[in-house]
Design a protein around this nucleic acid. Structure first.
Lengths: 130, 130
DNA sequence: CGCCTGTATGTGCACGGGGCAGATATACAG
DNA sequence: CTGTATATCTGCCCCGTGCACATACAGGCG
């Protein structure tokens, strides 16, 4: 929430909840399905692809990747090939791919709930308060 | 997440994040826009309307309503009219209505992000891991 | 050389929403 | 009198996230 949009009618943005909405793991799995990558790059890709320009917190991303490795969703290898500090290259595992599929189903359910919200809202909108 | 759906392909449901996804306040505002109501009833309506049969935690709902009253989003009056324990009748305020509008915009943004997720997923799906 | 910037990874701390468990009270049915 | 449905509320804890900060490597510049 509160992803940089202006306030609406002077009501300060609600600003509750995480900016990446509990789907950070899902996004990471998705991006890694696209191609193996390291944390810093994922950070940048996340900022673009998720729609709002705001990149998530680096610490959170790195922590998530580590946890996901512990859980067998991804594997990592140090990459010293290019100049600059070494990077940890992450790859999706079979398990990670399966979880991504589960996430996709979850996201669809989630979206249909949001649709329901919006359809109810559009029904009610404009009516005087009861 | 993990709203009672079965596991997908043996992968245990991710189960991270709140069941009502950080939109509890939005749902409460929306339902109250529909008609004034009390906590217990909102609890039941939430369980039906949000799509998954699972009702949110009562404590969480009551606490949210109280907070929302403190913030001027709703007002409450005790209702002794019917039999049984007294209930606290909540009504949406002008402020609450404005915030609901802001929430609706937020939900739309949110949904478009989920759309983006799903469209990327459907592009990638089926491809072998890189 | 020293300094700054950009790349890249990581830790400690604190906040805040929400789930879980349980307390309380009223009415009514058996 | 005990149990069940209705109705509200509190305490406690978990967990994900954001923020601030630390670390390290490489290259450019005066």
């Amino acid at each position: 929430m509160c992803v940089g949009e202006e306030d609406v009618q002077g009501v300060p943005c609600s600003c509750r909840g995480p900016r990446h909405e509990g789907f950070l793991e899902a996004w990471l799995l998705l991006l890694l399905k696209g191609s193996p990558s390291h944390g810093y790059e994922l950070l940048e890709r996340l900022g673009q692809v998720t729609g709002h320009g705001v990149a998530p917190d680096p610490g959170t991303v790195y922590r998530n990747l580590r946890r996901m490795e512990d859980e067998g969703l991804v594997t990592s290898n140090w990459d010293f090939s290019d100049a600059g500090p070494p990077r940890r290259l992450y790859r999706l595992t079979e398990q990670g791919e399966e979880l991504l599929q589960a996430w996709a189903a979850e996201v669809e359910n989630y979206r249909s709930r949001l649709d329901r919200f919006l359809s109810i809202y559009s029904e009610l909108r404009g009516r005087p308060r009861a």
